[in-house]
Design a protein around this nucleic acid. Structure first.
Lengths: 139, 139
DNA sequence: TTAAACTGTACAAAATAAGATTACAGTATG
DNA sequence: CATACTGTAATCTTATTTTGTACAGTTTAA
């Protein structure tokens, strides 16, 4: 898994921290400690799902597209990182006669998919607002 | 996450498929489609946890150290991959005054840890025996 | 109508992680 | 004591992740 999910959550929390304010990719990048191009790429994905509104041109930037109480980390995860939790390396050899060699990958695919469902479900209990609250509480 | 968990499960299932039989790292590597040194590294971890018994020297190799019904994928995951599910990249900057920049990483650490607990718990429902059964059933 | 401050996107470079390969000391077996 | 194995480390190669650069397109305002 790459860190786009972390960056998405951090950026959304930052926007929730500055309500009604347009933040540029440069400002967000500085807060997140990465580069503006990467922020813009992640924000593009979030915009396609309605989590943020973007505006081009002078005085443009990003702001939340929904109430921070309504944006769950589970939903953000689905949009940004679904499918990236499992390793891409493939075990065994489909051409081998031994069923252990040829069929284990298929079972692992199933197990990884179900396990990721569990993982994503867990994340639905958190929202951008609840994360911001924890941050303010200094937990 | 690297693929050591997949390799561990595949190797254990292979050993369960050949009960009472010593398999060499070369034979396992051929079945898994990787190299013997990698198999030996993973098997070392499994041996430290009692999942397999190893024997050096001529006619040596590996065999299961427990009943395949008793080896759960959750336990194997804990031993092989615990802690590797989350990204290593760190968001924000602890030196910045803004609490969003300095505290988001801490919250993400907590969320990733809890989410991984959920992930590992899910895996406890599977055993080496149940995976082998699925393979034999051709699912 | 044009300069400035932005996003959107693509591509290349650098850094890091994962996997394969090689090597060799140590250990049983016959 | 030769052989067939494990245990482990070092190194090489490849894949992935992250960063950096560039530039076309969009909006604002003088």
């Amino acid at each position: 898994m790459n860190s786009n999910f972390t960056i998405a959550v951090h950026s959304l929390v930052y926007l929730a921290y500055l309500p009604g304010h347009m933040a540029s990719s440069e400002a967000i990048a500085h807060n997140v400690a990465t580069n503006p191009a990467r922020i813009r790429k992640v924000m593009s994905m979030l915009r396609n799902s309605g989590f943020v509104k973007t505006k081009e041109g002078i005085r443009g930037g990003y702001m939340l597209g929904e109430d921070p109480e309504k944006i769950t980390l589970g939903h953000v995860y689905e949009v940004i990182s679904r499918g990236e939790l499992r390793p891409t390396w493939q075990t065994g050899d489909p051409e081998q006669g031994c069923p252990v060699s040829s069929n284990t990958q298929g079972i692992m695919d199933y197990i990884f998919k179900e396990a990721e469902d569990t993982y994503a479900s867990f994340l639905y209990q958190f929202t951008v607002a609840s994360v911001l609250q924890k941050i303010k509480a200094g937990v």
